[in-house]
Design a protein around this nucleic acid. Sequence first.
DNA 1: TGCCTATTTGGCATTATAGCCAAATAGTCA
DNA 2: TGACTATTTGGCTATAATGCCAAATAGGCA
Lengths: 123, 123
Amino acid sequence: MNQQTLSLFEDRAAIVKALAHPTRLFIVDELAKGERCVCDLREEIGADMSTVSRHLSVLKKAGIVGDTKRGLQVFYRLRVPCILNFFTCIEAVLRENAQRHQWHMGETDTVSTVSCSAKNCTS
Amino acid sequence: MNQQTLSLFEDRAAIVKALAHPTRLFIVDELAKGERCVCDLREEIGADMSTVSRHLSVLKKAGIVGDTKRGLQVFYRLRVPCILNFFTCIEAVLRENAQRHQWHMGETDTVSTVSCSAKNCTS
DNA sequence: TGCCTATTTGGCATTATAGCCAAATAGTCA
DNA sequence: TGACTATTTGGCTATAATGCCAAATAGGCA
């Protein structure tokens, strides 16, 4: 891998890493419904406010969310809605994994290549 | 967040985490072109074979790739092609971030919500 | 069988991430 | 101004991820 290719994939990985946490995926899902202040999210998530704030800063640094301060509160929103497509495909993977465990329990070779075209799939 | 919601987002995060590494994203990109054995990937990536094998096992455990042994070699392939949609949206985020840095250098508030509908966008 | 090749796995050191508490910051309002 | 609220940040510890080497495994072939 040359330097240019490497840095392309590093940039991409930085975005994916920012999403790679259950709490942050939950936040993205929430923000898909509309703006939320940190206190709203803190309540729904049930973690320390400082923890929620840190998760938000990770998402913000990656450019996935944006924020606006109004009065005492800071409101966060999704900057790039196509992030929501991730969920669709992830669900397809999860469905596949469920079937795999059901059908080929313990088998090493996983031959089938699966299309996620069933529903909500953009592939 | 109740237990059920939590575990849904944990399952999703497990998939995203498996993708959250430059080498693994590169592998997914390569496999999109067709089957590859570990040695092919090792050569392209230029890392230790054991490192590449570990990355592949992460992807396999998440259900993103499948493998078949033929003779001495193990061939890997993408199980769920919609994973490729990730790249499209990630590129949109990267484009946005580039513009953000260009336009609002140093500004705190990032107001615009952006659609990635320009090209290759499935949102 | 014995040797070779491709791949995986154990073990370890290094680095990154997560989450909490406490302290700092910034805006509001009496 | 001073008290109060919402949020962020510093500092710390605990846990997870990464990458390498060396050893183990598994198939092929003389």
